[in-house]
Design a protein around this nucleic acid. Structure first.
Lengths: 112, 112
DNA sequence: CGGATAGTTAGCGCAAGGGCTAACTATTGA
DNA sequence: TCAATAGTTAGCCCTTGCGCTAACTATCCG
């Protein structure tokens, strides 16, 4: 559970950057090389590579090198982890508002 | 659109911390004071207060002070922004895998 | 009034994040 | 073979993040 939390740390942290979100969006349409990806962002290759590494160590992408080209692919399962956490918070919230509505309904009944 | 991106920066950044996620989960069950919330986390009040401020400036919670007590409430709409972004990435991904499947189906047809 | 309570501010130390340049390795292809 | 290409590493700078303590303000209550 502590590990689950640490995974979410890395995951959300990776998402908290426009460059990295841009990479995710791009990789949704299919794999791409580091160089091709980098071309879309206004920074040097070494700087960009750090973002790639960040995404990789968060588990959001997987990369492999053939020849001198490193190819990146999206790992949807990891993104689903973030979706799941948010969905659970929604569940907790909605459970409570449901109870609140029932309470209000009960109160109205008492007053009638 | 640039502003939308900056909002997501703050949003995901706020989510990238176990203390702040804990506060969100707790506030899902209903409003609470700063002191009550702080009691659940192993840090000093001033340190904790920074997290509260972070959540507030990300728009995830709203706070108000009456007397000497500051009460915090969750702002679900803001969390929905994060859900929406993730849902869009899923859409992009699924659109592509759909096309891929159609392509494969077409290829099999050719070979028959 | 005066002590206890709830929060707040200021400032400090340290680690990490995100950009850069310079210099390097490993492939590829003419 | 050798120049171009694709990525990689090291290291620097500056800002930000997150914990702390000390000291302060603003209520509340006996």
């Amino acid at each position: 559970m502590a590990q689950y939390s640490a995974q979410l740390d890395g995951l959300f942290d990776a998402l908290a950057d426009p460059t990295r979100r841009g990479v995710i969006r791009r990789l949704g349409r299919g794999p791409a090389s580091v160089g091709d990806l980098a071309g879309e962002f206004p920074m040097t290759l070494p700087s960009f590579l750090k973002h790639v590494r960040a995404l990789e160590s968060a588990g959001i992408i997987r990369t492999s090198k053939t020849g001198r080209v490193r190819t990146c692919v999206l790992n949807r399962e990891r993104l689903a982890l973030a979706e799941d956490w948010l969905a659970e918070q929604r569940r907790i919230w909605e459970e409570r508002t449901d109870r609140l509505e029932q309470f209000v309904a009960g109160t109205e009944e008492d007053q009638s």
